[in-house]
Design a protein around this nucleic acid. Structure first.
Lengths: 135, 135
DNA sequence: CCTAAAAAGACCATTTGTGTCTTTTTAGGG
DNA sequence: CCCTAAAAAGACACAAATGGTCTTTTTAGG
């Protein structure tokens, strides 16, 4: 359980690759897809989403491609993951949209809150710059 | 993402209810299902699984039903969740079955390891006894 | 214009989730 | 020894999510 989907994996691979490129270099989708071993059309979908929220910038036409929307040390892993997988919500109880009438008396509720916050803290503490840095 | 399924939710509700019953009381499946508001046939499936690994004990025939397999302070939330949802694995990389040829060079890998351990630590620190305790 | 590239949207197959239904086994009580 | 109440087991079914592909459209450079 608690598993990232392929989409999530591919997204991370793709955007980390972008982060590892020289700043201001426009990368071809086909190059990125080949480099990180992800189906190109699938990665296209993912990057289109990212582009809408400014995580990456896209350029159309000849010489087009993708680059990061911001400097890699300003993008956290949490942002990337949530952009592609939706918010980190271990349990329906903690979504906060009133779905759970048991939340008042439910002892499990605070446990999931702790889980959620721990995950978010960890992911928010990692930037693309760190992930792209060569070992 | 990272979301518990209904099955997981139902399982927790059901087994926490069992934990809140007097020890050695055999509970009717129909009573449990009604009390925690879960489809009876679905809960049956879940408890059958639990019974196989000793998390609950089942009794057939007249006067049959379910009770906890062990004292509630000896059962952790982690056990319950993993029994029903499978192991806590945020990423295929950390499953350890050699699927990820990138793990050596992958900077994301250790992050998911941290996530995994944090979740397990939290869930392992909570027992059914605590969850069943009235506030 | 022509070409290269991303954007957008339709489409589709497979898997997973969320159950139900039926039949079988087991156990207790009269 | 039946009868009944209960769980076990297994087949079935439908919906949603996952993991893509394909085609058409838009955009930009030369």
């Amino acid at each position: 359980m608690m598993e990232l989907t392929r989409k999530g994996e591919y997204a991370i691979r793709g955007i980390v690759y972008l982060a590892s490129c020289p700043p201001d270099q426009v990368c071809l989708l086909s190059d990125i897809a080949a480099a990180v071993n992800v189906p190109q059309t699938f990665l296209a979908k993912i990057f289109q989403q990212f582009s809408k929220i400014g995580l990456v910038r896209s350029y159309r036409g000849t010489g087009g491609g993708f680059m990061l929307g911001r400097s890699p040390d300003k993008i956290t892993l949490l942002e990337v993951v949530e952009a592609v997988e939706g918010p980190i919500v271990p349990n329906r109880c903690v979504t906060g949209n009133g779905e759970c009438e048991r939340s008042v008396t439910c002892n499990v509720h605070p446990v999931w809150m702790r889980v959620k916050h721990q995950i978010c803290d960890i992911l928010a503490g990692v930037t693309l710059e760190e992930l792209a840095r060569k070992q």
